[in-house]
Amino acid sequence: MHIPDGILPTAVCLGGYATAGAATWYSLRKINQSENPREGIPRASLLTAAFLVASWVHIPVPPASVHLLLNGLLGAVLGFYAFPAILIGLFFQAVMFQHGGLTTLGINATIIGVSAILAHLVFQIRKLFGPDNRTATGIFGFLAGASGIALAAVAVFALLVTTIPANIDVEAERTAIGILTIAHIPLMLLEGVFTALVVLFLIRVKPELLEGK
C-alpha cells in the first residue's frame, strides 16, 4: 500500500504533501478544540507506536505471511488523532526501514490516512445500535477494517493507473487491475476479521479505548 519513491510524477508528490498538510491542519484544529488537547497527546503517541509495532506481527497466510495495514483499526480507535498518527507512522517507516518513500510521504499519508478516517466514521455507525452492542461492534469493526484497506487500495490503483507511463497498453492495464483487485479481496477479509476480533477484545477488556476522540 505504500508507494515508493521514483514512480510518481513530482507534481503528484507535491500535491500529496499539500493534501496531507491540509488534512493534518484540520485534524490538529479538531484536536485543539477538544476539552483537553494535551491529554490526548501521550495517549495518541503511545498508540501510534503500538500500532506500528502491531503491524509488524506476521499473519501466516500459507505459503507466505503478510503484514496488515491496520488503518481501519487505527481509525476506529484514534478518531481525529488517526491522521497525525498515520503520518508519523509512515515517516518512521520511510526513515527507519525505507518502506514507503520520502517524496511520497504526503500522498501515502493522504491515501492511508483519509481511508482511516472514513473507516472511523463507518465504525461509529455501530453506536446507532446501542453503545454496548457486541454484535454491532463486531460487524462494524469488520467493515471498518475491510473498508480501510479497500479504500486505500482503490486510491493507490487509481493513482498508479492515471500517472504511470502512458505506454502501457490498455489490455495489459486492464488485466493487471483485474488481478490486483482479486488479490486484494482476501486481504480485505483478513483485515476485516482481524479488526473485528481486536475490537471485540477491546470492548471486553478496555472499552474506553474505543470511545474515539
Partner: peptide, 30 residues
C-alpha cells in the same frame, strides 16, 4: 506456532493486548 491461520484470534488478542498496555501506560505517562 505461528504457522496456520487458526492462530488468528490469538494474534488478534496479542495486538489487542499491546494496544491496551500502551493505553494504560499513556495514562501514567500523562
Amino acid at each position: 506456532r505461528n504457522k496456520k491461520l487458526s492462530g488468528f484470534s490469538t494474534l488478534a488478542s496479542l495486538a489487542g493486548t499491546i494496544l491496551v498496555r500502551s493505553f494504560e501506560q499513556s495514562d501514567r505517562v500523562f
